[in-house]
Design a protein around this nucleic acid. Structure first.
Length: 328
DNA sequence: AAGCCGGGGTT
DNA sequence: AACCCAGGCTT
């Protein structure tokens, strides 16, 4: 892993943000792309937010990219390009929470502050046989304190990375390699046959069903319409085709009435074609997006995006996949 | 304290 | 389908 070969806070920070809730395999190509396009924090600070989001496209949790850009500008413009060199200082930066502050402080500045990520929760809850839910306030405090007791004060960076890697490769969520585990003899969960019960986690979120209808405009002068998502909710500041959200999947005839009433089409002549008869189900962690793409053939569009510039815009991967398959 | 925020991979 | 991922922010 390239970020193992440096103590430069910029690179460590970048890697840690990318790896939040993201597996190394998925994040590595993005890390390489960011380092190539933004070699220093000043390069990142000088970029447009849309450039940052474009490079982040497909990685998800886009607030990470927006906060990355905010913090880059702050470090470059207010801190002379220098990151805070303490856990406490790092914690104040946007997008940096307890885990990331500890990771940067220990790896870059040898501060003795323990990281607690999903791996650490799993390793500690099993080894010590702790039932406290890892996502409860009590659990979060308890596991942080325990990790802080255990950390090697002489080499916190190695300790932190080692316990995480141990969780990722040996003490895995499913099928952990207990048979060849160096901690087998003293692991409470193993000796009580409770490895599969730990860690304990509270509740599971309910997945909400949503129904998205995207209007893919095709004008005679080869333009379409992209809109920037505003406000709260998913995909903030990313672009999409004009969206009509409904409370169920729509049949062509019913949807045609809705489209006719749409502000982009008042009174205009157009043809509507349903691109996919079976809704494409795009699964987010907390929502299932039942998606239908509708082709709208029309003479002219206002503020149209020329087909050849569509791929300049940062879009959710659901839209990006459509653009790839649909030959504009 | 609980809910929200992506996309990919494994079981 | 359920679960997890080198979590953090908002309400």
């Amino acid at each position: 892993m390239p970020w193992r070969e440096t103590n430069n806070p910029y690179f460590i920070w970048l890697s840690e943000i990318i790896l939040q809730q993201t597996q190394v395999k998925q994040g590595l190509p993005y890390y390489n792309a960011f380092v190539a396009q933004f070699p220093t924090v000043f390069d990142l600070a000088n970029a447009k937010e849309s450039e940052v989001l474009k490079l982040w496209q497909g990685l998800g949790y886009y607030s990470r990219a927006r906060n990355l850009h905010v913090t880059a500008k702050y470090i470059a413009n207010t801190c002379n390009g220098e990151f805070p060199n303490t856990y406490k200082g790092l914690l104040k930066l946007k997008g940096i929470g307890d885990y990331t502050a500890s990771a940067i402080a220990s790896i870059c500045f040898n501060e003795v502050t323990a990281v607690v990520d999903g791996n650490v929760y799993r390793v500690l809850s099993r080894y010590f046989g702790i039932d406290t839910p890892i996502n409860s306030t009590k659990g979060i405090k308890a596991f942080k304190a325990l990790a802080q007791e255990l950390i090697d004060a002489k080499d916190p960076a190695t300790f932190n990375q080692a316990i995480m890697e141990f969780g990722a490769t040996q003490c895995r969520p499913k099928n952990p390699d207990c048979m060849f585990c160096p901690f087998q003899a003293s692991c409470v969960a193993y000796n009580k046959g409770r490895v599969d019960e730990l860690p304990v986690k509270l509740k599971k979120l309910k997945v909400k069903q949503r129904y998205f209808n995207f209007l893919v405009f095709l004008s005679k002068d080869n333009k379409t319409i992209l809109e920037k998502r505003k406000g709260k909710g998913i995909w903030q500041n990313l672009y999409q085709f004009p969206l009509i959200e409904t409370d169920d999947n729509m049949a062509h005839n019913d949807f045609l009435k809705l489209v006719k009433a749409h502000s982009l089409l008042n009174g205009k002549t157009f043809e509507l074609h349903q691109y996919n008869n079976v809704p494409k189900v795009h699964k987010l962690s907390h929502q299932h997006l039942n998606t239908t793409f509708w082709i709208v053939n029309i003479d002219l569009v206002e503020n149209g995006v020329p087909f050849e510039t569509i791929t300049d815009y940062p879009v959710p991967i659901l839209i990006g996949n459509f653009i790839e398959v649909f030959h504009f």
